[in-house]
Amino acid sequence: MNIFRLAGDVSHLVAIIILFLKIWKSKSCAGISGKSQVLFALVFTSRYLDLFTVFISAYNTIMKLVFLVLSYATVYLIYMRFRGSYDSENDSFRVEFLLVPVTGLAFLENYAFTPLEILWTFSIFLEAVAIMPQLFMITKTGEAESITTHYLFFLGLYRALYLANWVWRYHTEGFFDQIAVVSGVVQTIFYCDFFYLYVTRVLRGSGKMSLP
């Protein structure tokens, strides 16, 4: 555990809690892509099957369980409890365009051709693109509430901090995970455009982020 890893995990947790509390407190999931949240629940489910096979640490187990529970709770809020506020009209990204290539790639490029390893790789690839329905939705409606942009900022920051963690681990432990690093770089690139808008419009401007 290094400072980048810890900061990345905290950032990830903050993002997920921000989103959950936003929906819970406002009793509305307006502007939130349910599809992205289902994809994230799928990411955690397919990656954390190792909870059954290997024990790392109490921290590791607890964080994995918290991410799993919060992701499913968020999906529940969007599709069940506050489904009246769900904007399915604008959440129109075709997720099969992500799931089909990601599944195919996981079968082609993995560390071992075993169910758990293929699912682990699938989760890493899927995470890299899971935010696309949300970004698509913001582009379509042309705006995002500031709290939604804070969520996206922390979610993007988390993977960027993991990149620093991987550089650190490579130099201190000789640890290099090609699949995670390449996917992590791709994932972070997806957020770069958003980071720019976040700094120029949300932090310097007022409230909502509206696109030109």
């Binding site: 190792d50 790392i56 640890f175």
Partner: peptide
């Protein structure tokens, strides 16, 4: 690689 370190990351 079957590196158990991978499972340490979230």
């Amino acid at each position: 690689s079957q590196d158990p370190l991978r499972h340490d990351e979230l």
